[in-house]
Measured scan of single mutants.
Amino acid sequence: MSIQHFRVALIPFFAAFCLPVFAHPETLVKVKDAEDQLGARVGYIELDLNSGKILESFRPEERFPMMSTFKVLLCGAVLSRVDAGQEQLGRRIHYSQNDLVEYSPVTEKHLTDGMTVRELCSAAITMSDNTAANLLLTTIGGPKELTAFLHNMGDHVTRLDRWEPELNEAIPNDERDTTMPAAMATTLRKLLTGELLTLASRQQLIDWMEADKVAGPLLRSALPAGWFIADKSGAGERGSRGIIAALGPDGKPSRIVVIYTTGSQATMDERNRQIAEIGASLIKHW
């Protein structure tokens, strides 16, 4: 067993022997301040990774656009098919120029040779490549099948209805392509620590998230040296922004954090800054 596999296998073990965790309302004060600064709703939840206990939450059962955070769930569904012998990570998928959609920095470079399922998941999570996500959605049967996968996990809230990039439209009061912070946090925890996926697939999923290259201005910008984070960000229309993450000190994750916002007129930089400040408060009061 590799060191990384050992780390993920012992996530519940280490967490069980940690000192009790206590909620700190100071972080919620910052979440509410972010709402004021952005002029928009902000949803927040913080779960203990081992027990699933909610440590703090704000608007945990209000719907927010998922945006690209759905790509972690998508690759979880792909990995479940791999575990069941219905898919192979090494299978190569070929596609054409007509398949390319807006923001496809990886797939646009491989029109000639195609990409493997493993490479597509890596591109979808680490670079948020939209064509990679659409190609992977095709392998599982489309958005409705991802929703069905989530329902089978016990998540009857999260739903995907459309493809990239239309799913980022974020129309107010439109339930399409949305989740709730509580539902997303619980589902992410199941994917990373539950028995739904094999140990190898859980490790692969967290490795992809740990290698995320496009979430630097968010929670990662607030992390002290030595902290662990595996995350996936999302951005959408109407001032929408979000991030889902597993993080913790001492090089291992111990909490799940989900943050979503929508309806702001603020710039992307300002949305990023507010999420980073929430992260800084979380870490300060850990």
Rank of each mutant, 00 (worst) to 15 (best):
E26F: 15
T27V: 05
T27P: 08
T27E: 14
T27Q: 08
V29D: 11
V29I: 14
V29N: 15
V31E: 12
K32W: 06
D33S: 10
D36T: 13
Q37H: 13
Q37C: 05
L38V: 01
L38K: 00
G39M: 12
G39Q: 09
V42L: 15
V42K: 14
G43K: 10
G43Y: 12
Y44I: 09
Y44H: 02
E46M: 08
E46P: 06
D48E: 07
S51T: 08
G52K: 09
L55Y: 10
E56R: 09
E56N: 13
S57F: 07
F58E: 03
R59L: 05
R59E: 06
R59C: 04
E61R: 01
E62Q: 14
E62C: 05
F64H: 08
P65C: 00
M66D: 06
M67F: 09
M67K: 06
T69F: 05
F70C: 00
F70Q: 04
L73P: 07
L74C: 02
C75A: 05
A77Y: 13
A77M: 12
V78L: 10
D83Q: 03
A84C: 01
G85M: 05
Q86H: 11
Q86I: 14
Q86M: 10
E87I: 06
E87N: 09
Q88R: 08
Q88K: 10
L89Q: 06
G90S: 07
R91N: 10
R92M: 14
R92G: 13
I93K: 02
D99P: 12
D99C: 14
L100K: 03
V101D: 15
V101P: 13
E102I: 00
P105N: 04
V106E: 02
V106G: 07
V106C: 07
T107D: 04
K109R: 07
H110C: 01
L111F: 03
L111S: 06
T112R: 04
T112D: 04
T112Y: 04
D113P: 03
M115W: 05
M115H: 07
T116F: 02
T116I: 02
T116V: 02
V117H: 05
R118A: 12
E119Y: 02
E119P: 03
E119Q: 05
E119W: 05
E119D: 13
C121L: 03
C121M: 03
S122W: 11
I125C: 13
D129V: 01
N130H: 12
T131N: 07
T131E: 11
A132S: 08
A133M: 04
N134K: 00
L136T: 04
L136G: 06
L137G: 03
G141Y: 04
G141C: 02
P143Y: 02
P143E: 04
K144C: 01
T147Y: 02
H151C: 04
M153E: 08
D155E: 13
D155N: 05
T158M: 13
R159P: 12
R159G: 13
R159M: 15
L160C: 00
L160T: 03
L160V: 00
R162W: 04
W163N: 15
P165A: 05
E166M: 06
E166V: 09
E166S: 04
L167H: 01
E169K: 04
A170Y: 00
I171N: 00
P172T: 02
N173R: 10
N173P: 00
D174P: 02
D174R: 07
E175H: 04
R176E: 00
R176S: 00
T179V: 11
T179G: 14
T179N: 13
P181G: 02
A182L: 11
A183S: 01
A183W: 11
M184R: 08
M184Y: 11
A185Y: 13
A185I: 14
T186G: 05
T187S: 10
L188Q: 15
L188E: 14
R189F: 15
R189T: 15
R189N: 14
L191N: 13
L196F: 11
L196D: 06
L199W: 09
L199P: 08
A200F: 02
A200Q: 05
A200D: 06
R202I: 01
R202V: 04
Q203D: 04
Q203C: 08
Q204D: 02
M209P: 05
M209E: 07
E210G: 14
D212T: 14
V214T: 15
A215P: 15
G216S: 14
G216M: 05
P217T: 10
P217W: 06
R220K: 14
S221N: 15
L223Q: 00
P224R: 05
A225D: 07
G226P: 05
G226A: 06
W227K: 09
F228Q: 14
D231H: 13
D231F: 10
K232I: 08
G234K: 12
A235Q: 15
A235T: 00
A235V: 14
E237N: 00
R241Y: 14
R241F: 15
R241M: 15
I243Q: 07
I243P: 09
I243N: 09
A245P: 10
A246N: 12
G248R: 07
D250G: 10
D250T: 07
P253I: 11
S254N: 04
S254G: 09
R255G: 11
R255D: 07
I256H: 14
V257C: 14
V257P: 14
Y260Q: 12
G263W: 02
T267V: 09
T267F: 06
T267Y: 05
M268G: 15
M268T: 14
D269C: 13
D269V: 10
E270P: 15
R271N: 06
R271A: 10
R271D: 14
R271W: 15
Q274W: 10
Q274V: 08
A276Y: 14
I283C: 11
K284F: 09
K284D: 05
W286A: 02
W286C: 03
